[in-house]
Amino acid sequence: MLEATLLSLQTALIATIAMAVPAFLIATYLVRNNGRVAFIVDLAISMPLALPPVAVGFVLLWFFGATGPLGSFNPGIAFTWPAMSIAAGVVSLPLVVRAFTAGLAEVDPRLVFAARNLGASQLRATWDVTLPLARNGIAAGLLLGFVRSFAEFGATIVFAGNIPGSTQGLPSAMFSRISAGDFSEAWTLAAVSIVIGGIALAIHNKLVSEQRTRLAARSASDG
C-alpha cells in the first residue's frame, strides 16, 4: 500500500516536472497568438479533456508500440513505470496549460518589453518579470497537474498496466482491492488519496483566489 502511494507520488512528481517547460511554452504561444494555428494547437492539447482516459491510453499504446509511428524505434516503454508518467502527463497537460495561460494573460506585455528595453534578454525578462508576475497561475497549474497526475487511472491502466510493485499506483491498487472485495484496504487507500488530493487542491484554490484579489485590486487602482 505504501509502495503504491509512493509510486503514485513519484509518477505525479515526474509528470509535473516534465510538463512544466513544454506547458509554459505552449501557454506563452497561446497567450500571444490567436490565429488558426493557435486554435489547432489549443484543440490538440485539450483533446484529453474530452476523451475517455481509456482512449488516451489506447492511443499512447499504439503510438509507443511496434505498429505505431515510431515503428522499430519504439522504446518499449509500455507497461513500465515511465509509461505511468507519460500517461499522467498527457492527461494533465491541458489543465496545466489552461492555468498557465490564465496566469500569463495577467502579465502586461509592455512590462516584459520594458525589461527588454532596459537591457534584458528574452530569457532574462521571462525569469525576472513574466514568471514572478504569473507566479500564482504557474504554481496553481503545477499543483493542478500534480493532483490530476496523482489521480490518473484510465489511461495509465491501459498504457502502463496494473503490475504490483512495478506499475500499480494508488488508483490501480484501489481498483484491484475493490475488485477483490477487500474494502477495508480500499477505504484506507481512498483516505490517503483524499488527504493528499485535498491538501494540494486547498493550496491551489488559495493561489487562485489570491490571484483574483490581486487582479481586483489592480483594476480598482487603475479605475
Binding site: D108, R110, A114, A115, R116, L118, A120, P132, L133
Partner: peptide, 18 residues
C-alpha cells in the same frame, strides 16, 4: 532589442510592480 541603447519611458511608467 536589448542592445539598442534606446530607452523608452511609457505614459503610465510601466514600473515592475513586484
Amino acid at each position: 532589442l536589448q542592445s539598442l541603447g534606446i530607452a523608452m519611458v511609457f505614459q503610465d511608467g510601466m514600473l515592475f510592480p513586484h
